[in-house]
Amino acid sequence: MLDGLFDARRWNITLDSMGPFWDGFLFTLQVVVVGLVISLVLGTVLGVFSTTRSRVLRAVSRVYVEFFQNTPLPVQVFFYYMAGPRVLQAITGAPSPVRISSFVIGAVGVGLYHAAYVSEVIRTGIESVPRGQMEAARSQGFSRPQAYLYIILPQTFKVILPPLCNQTLNLVKNTSVLALIAGGDLMYNADNFVSTYGYLQGYIMACVLYFVICFPLALLVQYLEKRAKRKPRAKVIPGVTPEPVKEA
């Protein structure tokens, strides 16, 4: 059976039928973008919650994170797929279950799931900022929200960017869960191809296309990790800092 992998004719047919792969690729990319936005926004909010003084907010964040980190993504996505339409029906009072597109299920699914991980990244980022920073901000008259916005969160960027990129990478791969609910994503279309033709080339092409998205992200992680260790160089501020001295 593996002989087929080296069969030139099969490769030709595969390469000639790339249309659905590209469709799936684009669909997956769109799910990634929307899912990423959801996970970053929600994850940042939850991450900030977990560092506030409010016990209620900390508890909300904790429960959310533990729930989503300790249950499998496919189970969550199946649940949205089966229960979502009925929940929407109950909320909107529609006469029949409300159909939810696989795009929405995919984006919300990976978005909510990765928000839990993003939240933990944000939390450790904030905790890495010394307490004195908040005190300095408050001694200048910044409110806590202003201090987070102007002083604390910007300082976390260096620390959190590499793990956030890692999360993005995982999010890309996890969108393949959509294949389980006939989502029209890259994995689903690749699987369709394999079922139709029986050529394993389909899976290889899917791997290649996922790799094309993920590998640059992995390189970015490495670059950001290196950059985070560098010492900042003095900035030249026109009209303020002395002209840089030219070496003879």
Partner: peptide, 18 residues
């Protein structure tokens, strides 16, 4: 906060520069 903005600033042992 308003009173701090208007009346006082602070210098810390650990500098606490941003």
């Amino acid at each position: 906060l308003e009173m701090t903005r208007k009346y006082s600033s602070m210098v810390f042992q650990q500098f606490n520069l941003y």
